[in-house]
């Protein structure tokens, strides 16, 4: 898998004229990577993800997955949103199965994959529950399982834990790393939470606002356990703190610049 974003720009037309949401964004993601894009609000980071997902169209520039240009949404790019993610009339197992059904995958194979991914996200015992009976964290687990069940080339996540409380968020981050290690899925996640990005990523793209553009790329080198995933103690390391401060500073500077410009 090779995702390439080249000179990507996106303008929105509003009553006040054209607003540039993204300008000349360049990035790439390779097989099995976990990459985060961090940016302040207004940095166009959600727009970037939507463009990659094919849910919106760029003004100029190019997105390719394995050399094939993206022209619309497809099952090779799974997506997890922050909210309203589950089909409320379907139980957990049927939510996970939904994408497979859409694609016309035979029943036996569907059942196998559903039970595998329910196990991956640890929701086997809740398979018969309706979404309304689940907590926010559990709902996101179902959404992740549903996206993974389609076995996409890359999983796109738009602030998936943004609506969760701090405790749930932390356990979901740990959970996501375990899922990533176990399934080997390539992940591109958007977040405004620098700590989250540093903890999860192998690489980080820092996006600055108005117009959103890649300010800097960070390679995150933090120790991993023998299974190849990080655990919580990395947050106490001085390296972790340094990454966090650097990126936070970068975002703060760009926010100040922007406010000075507006003021």
């Amino acid at each position: 898998m090779h995702l390439e974003v080249a000179n990507l720009s996106k303008e929105f037309t509003t009553k006040e004229g054209n607003v540039s949401a993204l300008k000349n964004v360049n990035l790439h993601i390779e097989t099995g990577e976990f990459v985060c894009t961090v940016g302040a609000s207004g940095s166009g980071k959600s727009t970037l993800l939507r463009l990659i997902a094919g849910l919106d169209y760029p003004t100029s520039g190019k997105i390719t997955v394995d050399q094939v240009p993206v022209i619309g949404p497809g099952r090779d790019r799974g997506m997890v949103f922050q909210r309203y993610t589950l089909y409320p009339w379907l139980n957990v197992a049927k939510n996970v199965e939904f994408g497979l059904k859409l694609q016309g995958i035979p029943k036996a194979q569907r059942r196998e994959r559903v039970s595998y991914y329910l196990d991956v996200v640890g929701l086997t015992q809740f398979r018969k529950n309706l979404p309304k009976a689940l907590s926010g964290g559990m709902k996101q687990r179902v959404a992740i399982a549903r996206a993974l069940a389609c076995e996409p080339k890359i999983l796109l996540m738009d602030e998936p834990f943004g609506a969760l409380d701090v405790q749930t968020k932390e356990s979901m981050q740990q959970f996501l790393l375990e899922v990533w290690r176990r399934t080997g899925t390539t992940i591109l996640m958007i977040t405004h939470d620098v700590e989250e990005a540093v903890f999860l990523s192998q690489r980080i793209y820092v996006l600055t606002a108005r117009p959103g553009t890649v300010k800097q790329e960070f390679q995150i080198n933090l120790p991993e356990n023998e299974q190849g995933a990080r655990s919580y103690h990395v947050k106490t390391l001085s390296d972790f703190q340094r990454y966090r401060e650097k990126i936070t500073q970068l975002l703060r500077d760009s926010t100040v610049e922007q406010e000075v410009m507006v003021g």
Binding site: P73, G74, M79, F81, Y84, T85, G99, L102, A147, P152
Partner: peptide, 15 residues
């Protein structure tokens, strides 16, 4: 109908 639900369906391979 939440837009996210419709868009999620597209990314799951829905027509």
């Amino acid at each position: 109908v939440p837009k996210e639900l419709i868009e999620t369906t597209y990314t799951l391979g829905g027509k």
